[in-house]
Design a protein around this nucleic acid. Structure first.
Lengths: 195, 195
DNA sequence: ATTTGAATTATTGATTCATTTGTTCAAATA
DNA sequence: TATTTGAACAAATGAATCAATAATTCAAAT
């Protein structure tokens, strides 16, 4: 079995247990047992319990981002791209119960501030998805000639805020309606002409 | 001295000490001493240490809201009102160092979720300021015919988010530029015609 | 109506200790 | 060589205790 696939199994097993019992209550031995190996062998793949935890989350976050990127790639029209991005990136969490559960137990994973973001590179990748759409919209003359970087940061912050509101604190339906209304408002603020 | 003015003094003194030492490190006796009274007498005005703390914050938050309301009342044009609201409500904290300091020590004062908001009524008042502007804009035909309640919630959430980013985590200048860019974007999304 | 001193009750912080859990590593195995 | 193991060691944790500090009450005084 290739090592990368083995790591995939490890991270998925770890995520499963961490999401059920939380970081503290989950022992390295629990994870090893779930994988049918000894705990000392787990240390062949990760540096520490903390490392196992962070890498497991990293792994899940990357899958999320790639899934959104794939959905965007299917569209050509900028406005469609924007809408798909807003929707799928938001909906994704509804399906991954384990990741959602971890996020609730460890809300610091979603931070409003880049400086204390443990998953900075991954989120940078997510912001790039937004930025590319803004750039395309501006180049095609469909979006106003805005400050791309600051608007990207603005939109990403709003997005993170809604994830927190919807999934971490669970405002559910109400937050989703706000998200719809907000997305529409923002899209009007971006587009030169409205249909 | 009227009782309400006495309470004002008490809350201001308490805020001063709480902002300097934090909730735990500040004793009821410290506050009493600052006011030149005994701690048992302080209990004539408040129910508990917690009550003293919460009321002090409540007091400060009300002043803030009233200050913003006054600034808005000076303008007639909706767009001007919106701009003034966005600016003064954001700038206010820059001047009240004590409140800012408390907010940093107790970030839960600003929550993204109404359900766990200890200062719900006060924030409802703040949201009313936004709502009134939206209603005026729609009635005058200058804003799109949006869902007022959800848009109000959306804008208030975005506003709180920026307060957190700017004053609690201190992203300072960068966050302020985002706020400007965001405000402009939102205003374009609201307005029917752009100049 | 407001203030006080003294007494009571509730919290907190420091300390200890037994137990669990995280981590390392030399030797074994495939 | 890459992976796995068991045994040993080190670090973290939770429970229990206790003294000190701080919160709260209240009858009496102003």
């Amino acid at each position: 079995m290739p090592k990368s696939h083995k790591k995939h199994d490890i991270f998925r097993a770890a995520l499963k247990l961490f999401s059920r019992y939380g970081y503290k209550k989950t022992t390295v031995e629990d994870v090893a047992a779930e994988l049918g190996m000894t705990k000392s062998n787990l240390y062949f793949y990760v540096a520490s319990k903390r490392d196992l935890y962070e890498q497991s989350i990293r792994h899940a976050l990357k899958q999320w981002r790639d899934s959104v990127a794939a959905a965007i790639a299917e569209k050509n029209d900028v406005v469609e791209k924007f809408k798909v991005m807003a929707l799928t990136s938001f909906q994704y969490l509804a399906d991954d119960e384990e990741l959602r559960s971890i996020l609730i137990m460890d809300p610091a994973i979603f931070t409003l501030t880049p400086a204390e973001d443990r998953f900075y590179e991954i989120n940078q990748g997510a912001m790039l998805l937004i930025k590319d759409i803004l750039v395309q919209g501006i180049n095609e003359g469909r979006f106003y000639d805005i400050d791309v970087d600051h608007t990207t940061q603005f939109l990403f912050s709003v997005y993170i805020m809604f994830l927190i509101k919807t999934y971490i604190k669970s405002e559910g339906v109400s937050a989703f309606r706000m998200y719809e209304e907000g997305t529409a408002l923002v899209l009007r603020g971006l587009c030169r002409s409205h249909s």
